[in-house]
């Protein structure tokens, strides 16, 4: 919730945001009407990816940056398609 509030305040100050969150928080993210959210199929506390999984972590961030650039309206929620430690 904290990060959702900060995202809303930043957008109100005309600074675009993108959030990367574990998919467990989907309901929270939806209810807070956030600008852009990438949900990852990763365990809580490791939303970007598993320790040492450089490829997976990079893929998640690149997907979030794509969402940052291309989303056209608030409430843009996407799901990262590759599983935790998938090597993709």
């Amino acid at each position: 919730m904290s990060v959702g509030h900060v995202a809303r305040m930043l957008e109100e100050a005309a600074i675009p945001t993108v959030i990367i969150a574990a998919a467990a928080f989907r309901t929270r993210m939806e209810m807070m009407s956030l600008p852009r959210v990438l949900l990852t199929p990763n365990p809580m506390g490791r939303p970007i990816g598993a320790p040492g999984d450089v490829k997976g972590q990079t893929g998640v961030i690149l997907a979030a940056l794509d969402l940052l650039e291309h989303a056209t309206e608030s409430g843009s929620i996407e799901v990262y398609p590759h599983a935790y430690r998938s090597g993709a």
Binding site: E12, A14, P16, T27, M44
Partner: peptide, 19 residues
Amino acid sequence: QAEGYRIQRDFDYDSGPFV
């Protein structure tokens, strides 16, 4: 885990800012 976090009672907004 997603099931455990499905319920949220606070901070339900109808709309949100976007730039």
